[in-house]
Design a protein around this nucleic acid. Sequence first.
DNA 1: ATCATTCTTTAGATTTCCCTTAGAATCGAG
DNA 2: CTCGATTCTAAGGGAAATCTAAAGAATGAT
Lengths: 224, 224
Amino acid sequence: MKILIAEDEIDLQQSIATYLERDGNVCEVASDYNDAAYKVDLYEYDLILLDVNLVTGSGLDVLKKLKKDKRDAGVIIISANSSLDDKLDGLDLGADDYITKPFHLAELNSRIKAVLRRGKYGGDDTITFNEIMVDTKSRTAYINGRALSLTRKEYDLLVFFLTNQGRVLSKEIIAEHLWGDNSDLADNFDFIYVHINNLRKKMTAEGAKYIKTAYGSGYKFIAD
Amino acid sequence: MKILIAEDEIDLQQSIATYLERDGNVCEVASDYNDAAYKVDLYEYDLILLDVNLVTGSGLDVLKKLKKDKRDAGVIIISANSSLDDKLDGLDLGADDYITKPFHLAELNSRIKAVLRRGKYGGDDTITFNEIMVDTKSRTAYINGRALSLTRKEYDLLVFFLTNQGRVLSKEIIAEHLWGDNSDLADNFDFIYVHINNLRKKMTAEGAKYIKTAYGSGYKFIAD
DNA sequence: ATCATTCTTTAGATTTCCCTTAGAATCGAG
DNA sequence: CTCGATTCTAAGGGAAATCTAAAGAATGAT
């Protein structure tokens, strides 16, 4: 499942992402209203976790936008207070469920599962592209049916490419997605080269050469 | 399936009953503690939905009674609050699952199915995978017909793997399913290593090597 | 109460991976 | 073509994750 986490507390954002990714989901994060609105516009998500109190705007506006555009992502509202107003507003606007901070990740997870299971959002746990197939449940990538032995970072990188096919991804974007907004590393993303290289080696060994270098701007995943 | 609904909110009681009967189940209801204790004593149920807050007593006492009498009905605890104490008490006493009000009937239904499918109660009492066979009634696992001597945790772990074949299960997910989500221990799940190791030793001694380590992500149960 | 079994903790060994480094190769502007 | 910037590639140190055995704590049966 592809899940957007629109939450401005970086710690919470990261722990949610880690928890959900370990359960086989693909997570992207948005730290403010603009980022959330942008990503919701651009990508198809199976589920969106939406904090009502985003720094530059309200999560409820993102929800309005979603429903106006008749997008069918599931939505779970996250709120700092247990105000009934927030809850009712959110559910009125078409959210599927509601959770109040602080909460246990296990509870969030079971609500997520419930929303996803509730029908229309359920579906496929695999991502396929030509001879490549990724089973997100087992976190295993296959090429022509043969399993690749990928490390965690390599797997995450491949999934990120597969879910952003044809798009040029800069080192900075990749780093942000795979490592989170970690300002400690902000000055040097050269280690990306190593992971790209390792992933490429394992993929080309099976005949899959899809990761192209866009000199000076990044990488893109695309067939010839 | 014969299901007892021990719940004092009449509206909820009725909507659960209607929902479950539509699926072909036989439902009986109990509106207070005495009624529940009486019926549990008298009849054999496949599953019991147990509200912890019954008007004249605690649902947990019904559960204690059930377990003392070695009755094998599946039990799902219903609680009005998400108090971890209730949950842990319930699971400690032998309940099979736990759900917090308010919940969607669809979610309750899938939990019921999960409990029933788990084989223990009604339906098929065994889980098989290649040369492995688990008899959920006697809580015994066999490999090539030879019984393994498993502890409770090892048995639960094996069943959890068998019912989630191919899926990567993180230490956190495993801990949550086998121990309940206790955030106090959230920083240290290392004891999982020990149980994994013990179970592996007993299984590999019989030639069954299915528990693979997914470094950095968890474990998965899968054939080569 | 005693004993056996099981669970958790502890600590050291081992494995795996990630980031750094450094030199080679490649690209593009002039 | 030349040169600086960017990217590639291989190898190694060190950190983190996992494994393993064994001892202490809890549990349950007799």
